[in-house]
Each structure stands twice: as structure tokens, then as C-alpha cells.
Simulated assay, not measured.
Amino acid sequence: MDSPEPDDAGADDRSESTRRDHLRRNLAVLGVLVVALALLIGGAWRLVLPMFDDPSDDPITDYPGPGTGSVAVVISDAEPAAIGDVLRTADVVATAEAFIDAYEANPDATGIQAGSYTLPQQMRASDAVAALLDPANRADRTLTIPPGWRETQIVAKIAEVMGVSTADVREALDEVELPEGASGGIEGWLFAEAYSIAPDETVDQVLQRMVDRTVEVLDSYDVDPADRENLLIRASIVEAEVTDPEDRGRVARVLSNRLNGCADVGPLLQMNSTVAYGLDKAVTDLTLADLSDDSTPYNTYVFEGLPPAPINSPSATSIEAALEPPAGDWCYFVTVNLETGETVFTDDPVEHEQNRARYREWLEEWRQEQSAGADDATADEEG
């Protein structure tokens, strides 16, 4: 039997398949080499590229400090984002975001107040926060007027804070424009609160701002301009007589009841505070003779009705009490202890006289203690 001849076509197919397998393997190896080479070149380039970068081109998020020169900035909104924008605009900090981060990291930062400041430029954000908390960097001044102060006290305080004479302040009073309803002068119209005074602000501007603030407060309570002064008179008496918020409402009710006529005193208010104001005395210095002194229209033991003008700058609390006093039939009250502020109210004249006796007893003991304290001080000085 003859042997078969070789299949040339099959051999050619196997050879072609082998070549394709080799090609695929070579391409795969080449691909791996290309990827590896790309990674190697990329890594090297990332290492070498920064050597050619200009550091000045990098965005600055916070200055290294400590800062240089100085710039005036005005903070009108104490929210951290608003402060950050002001400081960034003035080039005190590099970014508002850096300031906000520093603000949130400082537990005292909430103490930053609105006002004018003088600060270095290009500070670290954390240093900027600390600088705003330092009173030495305040370019403005703070004028604080406590409720119940008289015009004379306010004038003296303005002179002290603004570095002028009291005569200068009194001269500036003539430049103040009083609002509608202010018929008794400026007393009572200088609203009692804290004011930030800018470096370039004048005395007459400060005084006008205080008067305007009073109008703003009264307008917030919808007080008719024709009723403004009457309300301030009542509120100033309330402010001078008691300190407890509830007592203030009761005193305001006593004033209304007295003005409407109480049985044995009629419309006589009989307020020691008004007598003391008219005589320019402290309440504790009043004598029985003072209560019958008719030389001043502020003596409400002698003259019926309200005094001619407010006797101090009342607080918003006293204004509210005078606007809406609680219901009650009290016609009398006495603060029986001026140190603790204990005040008693009644509609009984007999009980009222007993309460007045309690006050006189306290006053006598208080005066003796004051006299003994003065004698001890004198002895210490002599010793």
C-alpha cells in the first residue's frame, strides 16, 4: 500500500498561527514596556518639574507674618465672613477664608467688636484675630452712658472720652437739632448706651447721634411726636426711683394714679427724685426742708403734675414701663432700703406712713455708718 503524501496546506496554517502568537506576545511585551517607560518618565518629570517652577506663582492662602506698615480698617459687621472681607480688601490678611479659619480656632474671637482699627498689613490670619481683640489697636473710642445719668454727668463723660473741655461740650450742645416734641431742652434726649466714636467724629456729631438714637427708640415704640417728652419725663422718674424691672412698672402705675388724683394727695407726685434733681442733690442728702422748697419747679411735693422736663436719660426698660404700666390701685411706694432696692407699694395712706418711717430708720443708720467710715478713714490718715 502506498504512503500518503504530506499535507502542505496544514503545515502552512500551523506556521502562520505560530507567527501570529509570537507577534501578539511581542506586542504585549512592547505595550508593557511602553507603559512602564511612560510611568517612569512621568514620575521623573513630576520630580524635576518643580525645580523649574517660580514659587511666586503659587496662590497665597495665608501670610507668614508678622506684617508690615499699618492701615486703618472699619469693622461695621462683627460676623467673621464680613470681617474677613474687610481685612482681605485692606491686605491685612491674604484671604477671607484664612481669617474665618483663624476666627473659628480662637474661642475669644466672638469678643471682636465693630469699630475702627489700625492694623499692620500682610499679617498671619491668627495674628489678625488677636490684634482685633487687643484694645490697643482700636482707633476709635467708646463712650458709655449708663441709664439714669443726668445731662451734667453725660457732658463730663463726653469731655473726658473725647479729650475736650466741658465748656466745649456745652458749646456743642447749641448745635444739636432737637426733634419735634422736645420742649424742655436736651435733658433726657441723650440716649443711654455705648457709642463707638470714630477718630474724625466731632462733639456735636456725637451729641446729635445720641439725640437721634432716642428718636429711633421712641419711633420703634410708635410714640407720637407730641407725646415724646411726656413719656421721657415719666420714664426718667421711673429710672431714678427704682431698679427692679417689675418695680418700674408699678412706679409707672403710681405716677398715672397720682396724675389722675389719689384721695389724700391729689395730683401731687411727691417724688424725691425730682426734688433732688431740681436742687442738684443726691436723694440721700435731701432734708425735710428741701421737700417744701418752692424755688424749683421740679419739687413735686409743692407743684402738681409732672416736672417741666425729664430728669435723666432713661433706659428702654423704663420707657417700656411708662408706656404700659401694669394694672393696680397703688398710690404710694417707698424704697425702704436704697442699697438693696427693696420697694413696697400700697394704696393705704396709713401703711404708707409706716413704710416712710422704715425708710427714715434705714437712712439714719446708713448715715451713721457713712459717718463712722469717714471718721475711721480720717483716723487712719492721721495715724
Rank of each mutant, 00 (worst) to 15 (best):
G184D: 09
S315I: 05
R234D: 05
T18D: 14
P6H: 11
G111C: 10
D12R: 14
R88Q: 15
V217R: 04
L133V: 06
V35H: 10
S371M: 09
D375H: 11
L279E: 00
V71D: 01
N312M: 07
V169R: 06
S56I: 09
Y63E: 05
D140N: 15
C331L: 10
V242C: 03
E239T: 07
E239V: 08
D294T: 04
I197A: 08
F333H: 02
N355L: 10
A322I: 07
A321L: 08
P314M: 06
P349G: 07
M271A: 15
A131C: 11
L323D: 03
A82N: 13
V275M: 02
S273G: 09
D376Y: 00
G43A: 14
V48I: 15
P6Q: 08
I233F: 12
V35D: 06
D285L: 02
V32R: 08
A11T: 12
P310Q: 09
W189K: 08
A374M: 10
P199R: 03
D91I: 01
S17P: 00
A81D: 12
E320K: 11
S17W: 09
G148C: 07
E193C: 05
P179M: 07
D134P: 03
F99L: 15
F52W: 14
R88T: 15
E339H: 08
T340L: 08
G84K: 02
V334F: 00
T166F: 05
A289Y: 07
A198E: 11
N312W: 01
A276P: 03
R14W: 10
G111M: 12
L190N: 06
E369I: 01
V74Y: 00
E324M: 05
Q121E: 14
A263Q: 14
L338V: 03
P326D: 08
N137A: 12
V164Y: 11
L178N: 03
I158W: 05
A172R: 01
L47Y: 13
A252M: 09
E351A: 15
A252L: 08
P225G: 10
M1E: 12
V73I: 12
R367T: 03
V206R: 02
W330I: 01
L133E: 03
V283Q: 05
D224F: 06
